[in-house]
Structures are given as C-alpha cells and as structure tokens.
Design a protein around this nucleic acid. Structure first.
Lengths: 245, 245
DNA sequence: GCGGCGCATTAAGGCCGATTAACGAGACGC
DNA sequence: GCGTCTCGTTAATCGGCCTTAATGCGCCGC
C-alpha cells in the first residue's frame, strides 16, 4: 500500500466536482485492500457469485462476453480509477467475464461497501449514479459504431473514445497514449478480426491521421478524426447542477 | 384519461415486487398528463433541452442515433410501461433522438418528478436503479450481437429479446406477438439492411423456427433459437433482496 | 547466442451482406 | 375503382471483411 501515491479513483471523481473531506474518507475505505493479477488472468467469469466490486489501482482490464463457438466480444475496457462491477448489482451472478489485459492491481470491496456510500455520502451517490448513466450513453455510441460503421471508422471511434477517457485522469495528456492491447483484443472490441485491425491502422497512418510509437498511438489530426465519425465527448462534461450539497 | 385502465407502468414494476399503496400513489403522479403522437413523429432530437421524461402509455417508439451521411442506428425500442429518458439525466441536452414507430400516447413528467421519487419512495428508487443497471447488461448483450453475430443470429437475438420484454407486462403472452416495425427499422436496430432482414426472416421461417402472421411473429421453437445465440433472459428475474422495506 | 513464442503484417481466395433495381401486395386518398 | 405510396420480396452484382496461411520481428528463457 503506497501511502504517498494519489488515489486514481479520487482523481477521476474530482474531475467532476470538488470532493469534501468526508467524501474522500469514505472513498478511501473502498481502496483499503489490494490484489494483483498478472496479464491474461481471469478475475471472474459468468455465473460466478458476484459479491465484490473492484476499483482499478493500476493496469488495464476488459469485460467480455463469449459465443459458444469461441467468438468473443469485449464490451468494456477498464482503466485505473474505474469501478468495475456496477452492471452486476441487479443480478446474483456475474453476467460478464473480467480479464486482465496486462499486470494489474485491484482493490476489491464488498457490495455492502456501496450501501454505506449510498446511505451516508449523497454527493458520491449522485456522482456514481451519473457515471453509470453516462456509461450507458457511451454504450449507445458504441452500438452505433458496431452497427453502422466501416472498419476504419470503428477504429477511429475506438481511439477517440480512449483518448477522451484517459484525459479525465491524466489532464496533462495531450495526444499520445500507451495502448497495451493486442490487435486481436482491439478487434474483439470493435467487431473486427486482427487482420482488419492491422489494415485499418496502417491505412490511418498512411493518411497521416495517426502515428504509431513503440507501444502507443499518437492522434495527429484529432479534428479530422472527430469529423469522420461525428464524435461526441461524453466524458469531459456532466450535468452536476442537480447534485445535493 | 381512462380511470378504469390499469397503468402499464405499475404492471411492469409489479412484476418484480409488490408495490405499497404509497408507492402506487407516487407512480400515478407520473402518469397524470397525456400527449399523443402519430406514427413517424419525432418527439425530441439531439441537443434539445431535455427537461422531461416520458412514461409510455401505448404504442411502440424507438431511440436512435444518426451518422452524418444518413446511416441510422436504433439503440432502444420502447414499449408501454417503459420510462424513456433515464440515459439523459446526466446531460443537459438530449444525446439521442426519439421517434414514434406507430401512433403512441406518452405521459411526460419533469425531471423533478424523479427527484420526488428519489427522496420519498426508496422502494421505487431501488427498483428504478436496478432497471437502469439491468438495461445496461442488455446493452452489453446487444453489443455482442452486433459485434459478433451473423445476420440470422442477430435477428434471432432481436426476436428473443423482444419476447422476453413483452412477457413482463403481458404474462399471458406465450409465443405470438405483434411486431409494428418495418424491416428497415429492424435492420437499423440490428445493423443490417432491409433486404437482409427479409432474407433472414424467410430463412428462419423455412427452417420452421418461426412463423409469420399478418402483422406479427410466432416463435415456434424457442429452445432451438435460444441455443442458437446462447440467449440469457435478463428480464425475468432481478435481485431485489437488498431492497429497502 | 539460440530457439521458441507471441504478435503484427501481408497476401490470396471466398463468403456474406450491401447495393441497386424491379416487381407485387396492400393501404389510402379521392 | 383508380393512382399513389409504402413496404416486403427477390435477383444480380459488387465490395468489404473474414479465413487461412506464410513471413518476419521482437522479446524472453535458457
């Protein structure tokens, strides 16, 4: 446990409003415990009893669904500061699978930790509710991408969505970011094969819209990319005017 | 206003728990006002100030997103008893468009009606929160369908999802249901063209998996269809054990 | 330094769904 | 009863993405 490091959960939530000391203390409780998983680990799978939620301390993970014949769809990528497991609150058993895209550190906390938040921290409750709703809108955007976009457009949408999210926790980040996912994983996210992810990447690079570094990507012409897929940033702003306190 | 007719909102919510008289009174307030729209009407569009939510009294509607060149993705179909607009709570302006698939009657109520519910009716609050979360899981299933399924599988998933939802408000419904959507609209929902929706329909009918009536569909071999897409019913059961009261 | 492995790239061939178009059936207005 | 419009069907052609497979690069263990 690193006392000195700033909590990325608090960083993420602070983007939207100034947290009270009381709120900060309540959030700290959610990050007391730590577990590490190595790349490729399955943290939980469908039908597991889901008694815990997780705060991501470091590393990327993803939630996915399978088809019986082996096809796979990644439905959500998780970054440091994210809370994993909200979607399963309404069910006794997990409805999805969770895997580590690289070595990760998670902070598990029992569902009743959430009840404590709900009962005693109205400010965080409202924010978490808003984030859950916001994520739903993002899913609608993703649906639009998978249902109606070409391979190149899908990749563009995928990259723009990533940048927008990463900027919330890392304000200094401009246009270059690390991308610790294989092209097969990216394909499973946007409904393509690894082959076509590769082709789309090189095509975008050739057109000078993006550039690729060792393990990352640089967005070269963000405006052009945004116009290409009619991109709307759902992360930057949220309506917090109706919040309590 | 028909005093005699049972509210479909109350019917829908009653599927999951027994509502107290107090809860029923609070819900009735949400259905006081009524507006009618005829088939094809646009009730609201992106960037409209979204000050209202709507309870569907009768008729089907759908929420959709556009691409600049005219491609369209329907992201959610609404039935009687549904509450429309949850997803936009976190935003000042609408992030989606809403259109009437047939003649409909809606009950609009201001956002602050929801605040009244949140503050004074913990039972309904918990239920609405659960439904919002449940809908999120359904969206993940849909993502899997659009990302990884063939045209026939997508149509099967679409039909099974519809039946499961309709059974919540209409317990007597067995396997035949009305389908007031054009094949173009169905295609916009599952990411296909009207042509391929037609082909998928006739293929399923030829295989004896479904049958088509005048304006509806009959599920002939539900077990077989479910196996085909590894279908999980997210509507029948929800975990309400943690609810207050 | 060597072999093995995972991953990205590239090419060839095939299939599925898009596109376009023509036709028919039904609903509706007049 | 006629014309018009929408919607579903069917066919022909086209193109994008998949499948499969071969190649090469970088990383790691030994």
């Amino acid at each position: 446990m690193s006392e000195t490091s700033v909590s990325c959960l608090i960083t993420k939530l602070s983007h939207y409003l100034t947290l009270t000391d009381d709120s900060r203390e309540k959030l700290a409780i959610l990050e007391e415990e730590e577990i590490s998983f190595s790349r490729g680990s399955e943290i939980y799978t469908i039908d597991d009893a889901n008694e815990h939620l997780y705060v991501v301390k470091s590393g990327w993970l993803y939630t996915y669904l399978d088809l019986p014949d082996g096809r796979r769809q990644i439905v959500k990528i998780h970054h440091p500061g994210d809370i994993i497991g909200f979607a399963d609150i309404a069910f006794r058993q997990a409805t999805t699978n969770l895997a580590a895209a690289e070595d990760v550190v998670l902070c598990p906390f029992p569902k009743r930790g959430l009840r404590m938040i709900f009962g005693e921290a109205p400010q965080i409750t409202a924010l978490m509710f808003s984030i859950a709703v916001r994520d739903q809108v993002v899913l609608l955007d993703t649906l639009r991408a998978l249902g109606r976009m070409s391979s190149r457009e899908r990749l563009v949408y995928f990259l723009l969505d990533l940048v927008s999210r990463l900027r919330i926790t890392n304000r200094s980040m401009t246009d270059t970011f690390r991308l610790p996912l294989t092209q097969t994983e990216i394909g499973d996210t946007i409904g393509l094969t690894n082959v076509y992810v590769s082709r789309a990447f090189t095509a975008l690079e050739k057109d000078g819209l993006i550039a690729r570094t060792a393990k990352g990507v640089r967005i070269v012409s963000e405006a052009e990319l945004k116009a290409m897929v009619d991109f709307a940033d759902r992360y930057e702003q949220m309506d917090t005017t109706w919040f309590p306190e």
